[in-house]
Nucleic acid binder design. Sequence first.
DNA 1: AAAGCCGACAACCGCGAATAG
DNA 2: CCTATTCGCGGTTGTCGGCTT
Length: 316
Amino acid sequence: MGRAPCCDKNNVKRGPWSPEEDAKLKSYIEQNGTGGNWIALPQKIGLKRCGKSCRLRWLNYLRPNIKHGGFSEEEDRIICSLYISIGSRWSIIAAQLPGRTDNDIKNYWNTKLKKKLFGKQRQKQGSRKGKEINSISTISNNINNMNQNPCWPELPIMQQPIQFSNNDHTSIRKLLIKLGGKFSENDQLTNVVSPNSQYPIDNSSMQLMYQNHIKLISSSPIDNVFNSMTAPNTDPYDMDGEASNFTAEFEHMINNHQQKLDGLEFLYEDDVFIDKSASTSGGNLDWESMNPYVLPLPPIVASNDVILQEGALDEL
DNA sequence: AAAGCCGACAACCGCGAATAG
DNA sequence: CCTATTCGCGGTTGTCGGCTT
């Protein structure tokens, strides 16, 4: 038995919203709120629309203070960092970018950022190793598969956007507290167990996790990540004027440190990755089989491995 | 000029989670 | 506790406009 439809599809209008419908919905919600029931709302105001459609229209378009387009480099940086850290959790990413909707960010990532980051990577990969990453979609799919890893913690939605500022590690720590509740309020690391209780995470792992987030997410320290991972002045990046500094840094990280970014092999090695994934059931990427030498944790730990190998932890 | 292609974005769909009764 | 309903999320699809051939 299938799931009951949320509305009678024969009696609801679909497709683009007219200005009249927008005005109707907007004025009603501004005056009365949603009433806590989206399903009933369209009937109340005489709209032949599905309640879910109304909700989407309001959240993504009609809501006040919504920004469309014109993503700044800082926003790019945050989106990319968070995507690498937590995957395609658009609502969480959107919570960090006031005025942006998850749908907007998702579209922006799929149409621009992904290509911006991996498009060039693909090009470079071809010349560097004499082969090409099979496709952007494969990369994306593999990231998505990683997101489905059962040990990935469930993350709460931000109630308040956290403003990132350069060198503001406190804000990042607060984000991590909110994301996973991994840190106690008095900033002491505590023993934690992943949600499915399958993979206990000790203090040092959490310390690594936190430090990696610090390095990865905050804007200024991103430079430190590259600095700590690279020999100085090796392979100066060839800027073509189109790629932003951030893009260049990102690609640089991927290009030059593949052995260090355990767990992100798919970003540069298609054949190896395909072989591995083919051995797992359903072709899904299994984190442990993907990298048996690191803790069976989400991708973030892969980068922690970088820190371990580099001994960078000692400096922190 | 027309057809085809492609990128961008809005909107839809289906699922799991949350909540109410 | 169980069931039904609603919400929220993320993936996917549809549509439109611009560009190329």
